[in-house]
Design a protein around this nucleic acid. Sequence first.
DNA 1: AGACGATTGAAACGATTGTTTTAATCAACC
DNA 2: GGTTGATTAAAACAATCGTTTCAATCGTCT
Lengths: 233, 233
Amino acid sequence: MSIESQATRDRILDAAERLFGLNGFPCASLRQITDEAGVNLAAVNYHFGSKEDLYKAVLIRRIRPVNEERLTRLGQAEQLAGDQPVPLRAILDTFIRPLLRRAANELPGGMPFLRLISRDLTDPQPFMLDEMVREFDPLVARYTRVLTQTLPGIPLSELFWRMQFTIGGMLYAAAHQHDFERTSCGLCRENDLDGCLRRLIDFCAAGLQAPLTKAAMQPAASTLQQNALLHYQ
Amino acid sequence: MSIESQATRDRILDAAERLFGLNGFPCASLRQITDEAGVNLAAVNYHFGSKEDLYKAVLIRRIRPVNEERLTRLGQAEQLAGDQPVPLRAILDTFIRPLLRRAANELPGGMPFLRLISRDLTDPQPFMLDEMVREFDPLVARYTRVLTQTLPGIPLSELFWRMQFTIGGMLYAAAHQHDFERTSCGLCRENDLDGCLRRLIDFCAAGLQAPLTKAAMQPAASTLQQNALLHYQ
DNA sequence: AGACGATTGAAACGATTGTTTTAATCAACC
DNA sequence: GGTTGATTAAAACAATCGTTTCAATCGTCT
């Protein structure tokens, strides 16, 4: 592979990342992408095979370093903790920071990539499902192990749900971070990585270690609560 | 409008809801929709004007009752609380239950609608933005007022972010509820409205009333934390 | 210099899209 | 009972899509 052909590959990847992120996979046409990249239309099929394969390449190019950084930071945190359990907020930091960092212009990708990965994790393209599972499988194993050590009082079934809520909050914040300045009436400034990260960790740490309600400890006894309002009074 | 034409309108709306929810707006074609509805292709443009207007009609038909139910339940909760602030978990229940209820076959719409609304709130179709703001504006005003009364210690700027995380967790859970049974290795059963609702409320209530970290109380002093791991040890 | 594989360029292909058009059918009313 | 307006049916429209084809060009070797 020559050095110029690598340049066209990269230009295609950059343009595709931006347009897939802004418009989504179905609405970003190859002609838009190749025009913006300044390359010929046929270059996509020549270098990547198909539109779907281009999409895979765009996602994998960014997700893999993010997940590697997550595991690296988690390893450092474990080392630092010694034989003590890793502090919950440190675990969350290793998980969230590598992603949100990409939107703060600290690293390539930026806002379009965050919208792209957020969209594809909340609403996956069918042909990406297997690929995604393969990329995230090692993470699931490592984080569940660390979390069960840090939060020994939380049953695994509860932990599973709470991690889903954590991921949901993270992805929603990642996708909308740049809209918040406009929709928050001045309560949020753009590109405030530290602020967003701290708030998200505050929120999710509290949620993850929330005390168990009666229903959570006796799941078999939970029944439909007809009037939930009374229950909370 | 005759009674049969209303029937074709409804058949189109039902089929569109299912296919928009499953495949997304761009990938669900009008021919798919009209075939499944058993009506002629031109009926969509005749009754709704365009594909975009059909999409609007599909969303509004379900969102409006959900938001009305939210405000009704919130009103009941306020009445029940008297001059006391409404309990946080009760507020969250009025907000989340009317949506998740739709997926538990308690009400029409079901899983496709939840995927649809979840997708359009996390990744809105551009032409729906104004319509959505109009539908949700009254909610924002009411819920921020009630929440500031219940959580007087949380600054508005923090509350804004925490509500975004709450919404993100709710939408993610709503969209994936039916996948969890498959991906959770038996930790989650499908259609468990009460279980999902309780866990989500446990999580978000703890997150919303989480104690403020130093950075949250002195936002001006927050600087980029180069090595966040040490910070948590 | 010449030959060969890799890459690019321009054009066309077949399929599908949302929309429009035109005629046929239906229901209701004077 | 014939007429009018609403609704449905079938066909065609123009545009765009991803992909393929084939010749032209480039870079790199012998």
